[in-house]
Amino acid sequence: MEIALDLLSWALLLVGGFFAIAGGIGVVRLPDFYTRLHASGVTDTGAAYFILAGLMIQGGLSIITVKLVLIGFFMFFSNPTSTYSLAAAAHRSGMAPLDGAGGPNKPEPVEKSLAEPIEPIEPTPTKPGGAPPSQP
């Protein structure tokens, strides 16, 4: 039992480390600011939660776990908020996002989707390869 829990927590720690490095590589590799936000999101959610979960298992039922839960709680609320304010500040400063697969900057690729009211439920047909849900 002890061993099984240890193995589980090691696996969680390793997965967390993997996500952290993946996010770090993404932040260096992705082409523009907005796409880098997503890579940073990977380290903020995947890496953080997995590592915290791994530590919680090591902590057992104690004050340690409570503190880890609190850290996770604060991260859960503060990270998306700071990411949002970062994105909003960049957007307000007039930074244009890349369009398509790393194509050139277009001034405002959003406007046309503004004109048509967004249909909330209609499942948008995608290209054959990309069935929207359940792609690992």
């Binding site: 720690l13 967390g16 480390g17 993997f18 490095i21 770090g24 590589i25 932040v27 890496a47």
Partner: peptide
């Protein structure tokens, strides 16, 4: 294991 995770974090910090 803690050290491995810490190293991964350090690598990420270097990339950042």
């Amino acid at each position: 294991m803690f050290a491995a995770a810490a190293l991964a974090i350090l690598a990420t910090m270097a990339l950042a």
